[in-house]
Design a protein around this nucleic acid. Sequence first.
DNA 1: ACAAATTCTACCATATTGATAGACTATTAT
DNA 2: ATAATAGTCTATCAATATGGTAGAATTTGT
Lengths: 150, 150
Amino acid sequence: MKLSKKSDYALRAMVYLTANYQKGAVQIKEISAKEKIPQKFLENILLTLRKVGILNSKMGLRGGYELARSPDLITLGQVIRALDGAIAPVDCVSQMSYKPCSEEVTCVIRSVMMDVRNAITDVLDKMTFAEMCNRAADSLEKREALTYTI
Amino acid sequence: MKLSKKSDYALRAMVYLTANYQKGAVQIKEISAKEKIPQKFLENILLTLRKVGILNSKMGLRGGYELARSPDLITLGQVIRALDGAIAPVDCVSQMSYKPCSEEVTCVIRSVMMDVRNAITDVLDKMTFAEMCNRAADSLEKREALTYTI
DNA sequence: ACAAATTCTACCATATTGATAGACTATTAT
DNA sequence: ATAATAGTCTATCAATATGGTAGAATTTGT
C-alpha cells in the first residue's frame, strides 16, 4: 500500500508550487534544489502533471511551472492518480481502472476492499493543497505559540 | 496503493480456511484448485502465514493447514502485513516499519498520510475473517430472497 | 544570436513481483 | 517396514516496476 517515490516527490513539488502560487513560474531547478528531488526525475514528474492539466508551463527564458488552477481546486488524489494510477487496492473496486473480478457477485473480499478504497479516497479526494498547506501552517503557528509560552 | 497478488491469494486462502474451520486440516492442493491459485506459490504464502502464527500445519498423510485460532480473532490487517509488510503509505506514519522523515516536525504531507493510514487500518484491522464471511453470506441471502420475491 | 528553460526520446540499473523446481523431512495407512 | 502423502526449505527465474540518467530538440526573452 506504499506511495511511490514519484508520487511523494510530486506532492512535495505541488506543496512548493502552492506556496508560490501567483508569484509566477517557478523553475524545475529551484524546486529540485529546495525540495531535494533529483532534477531529471522531477522533470518527468512535472511533465506528467502538466499533461493532465494540473500544471501550466512556460518554455524558454523566465519559463517554469505554476499551478494551472487555484490550489483549493487541486486534490492530493488527482496528483497521486496522475503519477501512480489507480488508488484502489484491487481493480474490481477501482474507478480509474475498473476490471470485474471473475466472481464479482459472490466475492467475499470485494466489499471490504470497496470500504478500503472509499476510506482512502475520502481523505485523498477531499484534501486540497490549499487546505493541507493551511493546516500545516496552523499547526506550526500553534507549536510556535506554545514554545513561546513555555 | 495496490494489494499484491500474494496478499490477494492469502486473503482468498484464508476465506477458504475460514469456511472449513473445525473440519480439520485442508490440503494446499485443495485450496489451490478451488481458489485457482498456483500451488507452488500458495505453498510459500501458507508457510509465511504459519510462521507468523496465523495458521497451523500438519505434515504427512492427512496433513494440511488450518486456522491457528478462531476466525473472529484474525483480521485482514494481520494477514496483509504478514505478506506485504507495512500498510502505511509512507514509512514516517507506519507502525510496522516506522522511519522518521527528514523534516517530520514541519512536514506538510505527513499528517494527511497519517489520516490515510488510519482510514485504511480502521477497516483492515477491525475486519475479521469471521465477520467478512458472515457479511458475504448475509448479502447472498438477501440477494436470493430478493430473487425469489421477484 | 544567445542563453535559459522546458520537452522529448531513449536508456539503464536495481528491486520487486509472481511463479516454478526439486530435494528434503515428517507422518501415517497398510 | 515401507510406500504414499503432504508440508518444508532453498534456489532460481522471467517479467515488470521503480528510480534515475543522458542528451538532443524546441521554445522564448533579451
